[in-house]
């Protein structure tokens, strides 16, 4: 049975702030951040946008592409995020209601830093394969938090991507294999009640991102008997431009296979949306028969890897919703004071 993606959708809010503007306010050297992180600008949510609204917009785009799917046939919906609007009250129920999927489905919010939604894709694949549900939806969406003046402020962005998982003729991208790699690592965390995450600088790279992304990918390649040469595209979690590039080179993927899905320089790090928006940008251009390797990364820490093969069904579905590049181009720049207002950084009284 061919199991995989039957529809995908992206959404990115239209406001942007440039690296120079953030650096100007804090007296930082903009070039060192631009070159150090490989980022030009990041997306910012409007006052009336949050993880739930971004998730709904992305999921509506995914359902447009998954045109054969009736709302009553969706048996599961998960929203992976680290910025759910409520600590207790599921974003997933709001999204399911807005899509008209209720009440006959299971729904939950998942959290594993930036990989909560790829894990939910695995859950959907499992339920579809086992015959428990016909279709499942997994959405990765965030309005990422980064404390003012922290290096994270330059990258913490807003956006999301949604995937409808199912089986049969409608599959546009078959998931051939998936593998995960998880360990307890203190690289990045946010305690209950805290507004911003903390990160333990030296843990971020080697023992966290690279250890998990590289090993997860390497073991998936071993298990499937494939090599980087067998893939036309590779997508990694992208907290900045440098990490995914370094991981790709170390694994032996050519730079050109990474570029179509590398959005962070114009988008920022959309946390749970990051690698899945990258995958959406690849699906926007991929041809039938081409193969994609996707590896997410979530601090704490873990990675999920997927070997994906694009099918002929993509040609008739792709054009039913906007491509990621449309959202990257549709933008309006704001200054830091407007950003501060929209992010509610001012204390009014």
């Amino acid at each position: 049975m061919r199991v995989g993606i039957v529809g995908y959708g992206a959404y990115v809010p239209r406001l942007r702030i440039r690296v120079e503007e953030i650096a100007r306010v804090w007296g930082h050297d903009a070039n060192s951040y631009r070159e150090g992180l490989g980022i030009e600008e990041k997306s910012v949510p409007s006052l009336d946008e949050d993880t739930a609204t971004i998730a709904v917009e992305a999921a509506r785009n995914a359902m447009r592409r998954a045109r054969e799917v009736k709302p009553s046939e969706v048996g599961a919906l998960f929203v992976g995020s680290e910025s759910h609007p409520y600590v207790v009250k599921p974003t997933a129920a709001t999204v399911a209601e807005a899509l008209g999927l209720t009440p006959s489905l299971t729904a939950a919010d998942t959290e594993f830093a930036c990989k909560a939604a790829t894990t939910a894709i695995q859950a959907c694949l499992g339920m579809v394969k086992a015959g428990y549900i016909r279709y499942g939806i997994s959405i990765g969406a965030d309005t990422a938090q980064g404390a003012p003046r922290d290096a994270l402020e330059y990258t913490a962005a807003a956006g999301g991507a949604a995937y409808v998982i199912g089986a049969g003729e409608g599959v546009i991208a078959e998931v051939e294999a998936t593998y995960s790699y998880t360990q307890d690592v203190p690289d990045f965390w946010r305690r209950d009640g805290d507004s911003y995450p903390r990160h333990a600088g030296r843990f971020t790279g080697e023992p966290a991102y690279f250890e998990h992304v590289i090993n997860c990918t390497r073991i998936l390649l071993e298990k499937t008997g494939t090599t980087p040469r067998d893939y036309d595209y590779v997508v990694f979690h992208q907290p900045n431009s440098k990490f995914p590039l370094k991981a790709a080179r170390e694994l032996g993927f050519e730079d050109k296979k990474l570029h179509p899905g590398l959005l962070v320089n114009r988008l920022g790090n959309t946390y749970s949306g990051s690698s899945l928006l990258g995958l959406a940008a690849v699906l926007d251009v991929a041809s039938p028969g081409e193969r994609i390797l996707l590896t997410s990364y979530g601090s704490g820490a873990g990675s999920d890897s997927f070997s994906i093969r694009v099918t002929a069904a993509i040609d008739s579905k792709r054009k039913l919703a906007p491509p990621v590049i449309y959202y990257l181009d549709k933008r309006e720049y704001i200054d830091y004071s407007t950003y501060a207002r929209y992010r509610r950084l001012f204390k009014e009284r």
């Binding site: 739930a52 807005a98 926007d284 041809s287 491509p323 549709k330």
Partner: peptide
């Protein structure tokens, strides 16, 4: 409680043309 719901935005169908460009670039 946070109340969600519909608002309206200007129609922008310019995204349709992107697919031609993307294909040519590829």
């Amino acid at each position: 409680i946070i109340s969600y719901g519909f608002k309206f935005r200007p129609v922008d169908d310019s995204w349709v043309e992107y697919y031609g460009k993307l294909l040519a670039e590829k």
